[in-house]
Design a protein around this nucleic acid. Structure first.
Length: 277
DNA sequence: AATTCTTACAACCGCAGTTCG
DNA sequence: GCGAACTGCGGTTGTAAGAAT
């Protein structure tokens, strides 16, 4: 069964958006809200596919976008976040209000990569170039049993790529100045900006989709039972009564919230404990 | 002035996870 | 439970604008 096709590709425009298309999209979203991208183009009188409309809105037309040059502070924050999260541009963008994942990705590729290279730092591993060339940046993994330990260095591995049932532990002292000189891990980080994900006026599917908070979207609970955002969806996640019986819940040690942020240290990032049960 | 090269960034493509019928 | 559709994400491409030759 399934649903009807997303859009008639044969009758959609491609390439750069015209001013008129932008105006149509903006005025439609202002009147009806975001969401339901599939039906939006037709409703707004646009010969574009919903995917294209969504991209145009998120990356260019949203009124809360900052635009303009990145500040030095933003530069450094992006570098730090990239060293911790890797190419998770959407996560990084969530820490930079007014910036989009696409914008940050482009900025990284055109500016920051070069900046790091000029400093003699490998942008992929955040290690000195000579070091990166001689070392395999992959995390070491000894696969003895379900409590496999993965040791992370400060290199941008994909920390979320952990098979179910694995415990991820950053070994004490691994993320230090010895392994990542110049990398200041006193990373001030705030709770994610939810406004971008607020539900549409349409409700329905999009409301359901957008009620998951950042912590929940990562599958992380803050106190072992629920993430704390109080949303119904999140309680399901946290209570562990989903189909998996909660076996995939990530439990963060007391005093820490998701991603290992220390609750009692003014949100200073601490990676010492991130355990998946 | 014309051509080539470089840079910047908007937009597209394909994939994966989630949801619906 | 299954297959198709939807959404979001990351990688890549296309191209306009500016710089260099």
């Amino acid at each position: 069964m399934g649903r009807s096709p997303c859009c008639e590709k044969a009758h959609t425009n491609k390439g750069a958006w015209t001013k008129e298309e932008d105006e149509r999209l903006v005025s439609y979203i202002q009147a009806h809200g975001e969401g339901c991208w599939r039906s939006l183009p037709k409703a707004a009188g646009l010969l574009r596919c919903g995917k294209s409309c969504r991209l145009r809105w998120i990356n260019y037309l949203r009124p809360d976008l900052k635009r303009g040059k990145f500040s030095d502070e933003e530069d450094e924050l992006i570098i730090k976040l990239h060293s911790l999260l890797g190419n998770k541009w959407s996560l990084i963008a969530g820490r930079l209000p007014g910036r989009t994942d696409n914008e940050i990705k482009n900025y990284w590729n055109t500016h920051i990569r070069r900046k790091l290279l000029s400093r003699g730092i490998d942008p992929a591993t955040h290690r000195p170039l000579h070091e990166s060339a001689s070392q395999d940046p992959k995390p070491t993994q000894d696969s003895t049993d379900k409590n496999t330990i993965i040791s992370f260095s400060s290199s941008p591995q994909k920390p979320e790529e952990n098979p179910k049932g694995l415990a991820i532990t950053c070994k004490e002292g691994k993320l230090d100045q010895e392994t990542s000189p110049g990398l200041d891990l006193e990373l001030s980080i705030s709770l994610p900006d939810h406004s971008r994900h607020q539900g549409s006026k349409n409700g329905g599917n999009d409301e359901r989709r957008t009620t998951r908070c950042f912590a929940c979207s990562l599958g992380v609970t803050t106190n072992g039972t629920m993430c704390g955002c109080g949303r119904a969806r999140c309680e399901v996640f946290g209570a562990g009564n989903s189909s998996g019986g909660g076996s995939n819940d990530v439990i963060v040690s007391p005093g820490y919230d998701f991603l290992g942020l220390a609750n009692n240290r003014s949100s200073i990032l601490d990676f010492r404990t991130l355990e998946m049960k």
